[in-house]
Design a protein around this nucleic acid. Structure first.
Length: 420
RNA sequence: GGAGGGUUGGCCGAGCGGUUGAAGGCAGCAGUCUUGAAAACUGCCGUAGGUGUGAGCUUACCGAGAGUUCGAAUCUCUCACCCUCCGCCA
């Protein structure tokens, strides 16, 4: 959410952003609604002032004057009963539109229409060379008995899976490793539930717009979040924090649920795109200054890079363009890991700086050194998401005999084994 | 799932249908005193909006929403959450 005052004062910047981010929104409708609301509000408040003054006069009035005052109060109350709902309606309509106004991207963000316009910043790591016929992860997992795919269809339908044996423990090892890795860098580990109220998804910015991506529980006002960003963001909703409490850096492990509506036919096989996965997410709430959040952006990007490097996985970094970045984001980089069987990089991490866009929706504020209440900035980046990362891991580190060589960093978490 | 009790400002806590945006305390800020600090004393000290150069004026908000009333933190209803007991359960 942007400050309505900012929108009033900078309509052209906002208009341009709406265009660049390919958001469907009529800014003029919003501005017109805003001025109508302001006008109506003034007249309602005038009536309210009158009503309050009148009501205050009643107890002081003589018994003779009293009936007149009470009648006047009744009349005012009657008028307000028609005006107030109108006001409320306008307020809600304006809020609906305000929730759709995108965050202004940072100046360096490339303008573009789709993921094709994302800019590759660099590639890291060495691509593996195989002197044998490499297996894709599905073949490898089947060969090693590391997953259930077909049988699971009868349990949970398509895009579901079970990990078996060493791969099941490897998944947990990865998350434990990540949690400890981030804890060592000052993060607070969280094990979060993905079960959330709808308003938490509005607060993050997934709603309005992403409703069809989210599973909802029949008969309950609860949904299954697609990332721990959702519950963690709402942890501090409506709070006014002390400056000393910031930054809050969380490493949050949770299940993540995605309906994958609209991606039928894509990545239907294997572990690449599933309905339920496990993710350890980096989530930052920091002081609401661009230089502070930008520094954190660099830090959580670095954390992810260091994790991937320690897992000995080649990856590349993409600077995501305006058309592909999501309404709330001021800046976004994707990390993509090399998938040997596909001979291409696939997204495993998404690093975002929302600045105050999310904090405004959520009401995450703090008192600055002057005692003024400010909105915080929030950022998030994947730490590790499985099983997608397992795809890269087993494929890159596979051996000719079907074994997988574990990167040294993971061995302590896998009983010291070098191979599985 | 059943029964009961609760939800008030950063925290604790009072609150009769009218002069309460809310006593009192703590914390915080400023000042007096002091070489300095502490103590003591004095003052300030919720959020969001409108309006005004400004002091200020004004509106909303006492878990959320609706209602009764000239007037609601105070009364009624619905919901959410918290606590206690019972049941069930990992």
């Amino acid at each position: 959410m942007l400050d309505i005052k900012y929108i009033r004062e900078n309509p052209e910047i906002v208009r341009q952003t709406i265009r660049n981010k390919r958001v469907s929104l009529e800014l003029d409708t919003l501005l017109e609604l805003d001025s109508r609301l302001l006008e109506l509000k003034k007249s309602v408040e005038a009536k309210q002032t009158e009503r309050n003054a009148n009501a205050k006069a009643v107890p002081k009035a003589t018994p003779q004057e009293r009936p007149t005052l009470i009648q006047k109060g009744k009349d005012l109350s009657e008028e307000l009963k028609t005006l107030e709902p109108q006001l409320k309606e306008l307020e809600e309509a304006l809020k609906d539109l305000l929730l759709r106004v995108p965050q202004i991207p940072l100046p360096e963000v490339p303008v573009g229409l789709s993921d094709e316009d994302n800019v590759e910043l660099r590639r890291e790591g060495t691509l593996p060379v195989f002197d044998f016929a490499l297996l894709d992860h599905v073949a490898l997992l089947e060969k090693r008995g590391w997953a259930e795919f077909e049988r699971v269809g009868k349990i949970s339908g398509s895009r579901s899976y079970m990990l078996r044996g060493d791969l099941a423990t490897l998944e947990m090892a990865l998350h434990l490793y990540t949690l400890q890795f981030l804890s060592a860098r000052g993060f607070t580990a969280l094990s979060a539930s993905a079960l959330v109220r709808p308003e938490t998804l509005t607060a993050t910015g997934h709603f309005p717009g992403g409703e069809d991506q989210v599973y909802r529980l029949e008969g309950h006002d609860l949904m299954l979040a697609g990332t721990a960003e959702v519950p963690v963001n709402f942890l501090h909703s409506s709070e006014i924090l002390d400056l000393e409490q910031l930054p809050l850096a969380y490493a949050a492990y949770s299940s993540a649920f995605r309906s994958e509506a609209g991606s039928a036919g894509r990545d239907v096989r294997g572990l690449m795109r599933v309905h339920e996965f496990k993710k350890t997410e980096q989530y930052i709430i920091c002081e609401g200054k661009p230089e502070v959040s930008s520094q954190w952006f660099g830090q959580i990007l670095q954390n992810a890079e260091d994790l991937l490097a320690s897992l000995e996985l080649p990856y590349r970094i993409l600077q995501v363009c305006t058309g592909d970045m999501g309404a709330g984001k001021a800046q976004m980089y994707d990390l993509e890991c090399w998938i040997p069987s596909e001979e291409r990089y696939r997204e495993t991490h998404s690093c975002s700086n929302l600045q105050d866009w999310q904090a405004r929706r959520t009401g995450i504020r703090y008192r600055d050194n002057d005692g003024k209440v400010q909105f915080a900035h929030t950022l998030n980046n994947t730490g590790i998401a499985t099983p997608r990362l397992l795809v890269a891991l087993v494929e890159v580190h596979q051996q000719s005999d079907g074994r997988v060589k574990l990167p040294a960093a993971l061995r302590p978490y896998m009983g010291g084994k070098e191979f599985i």
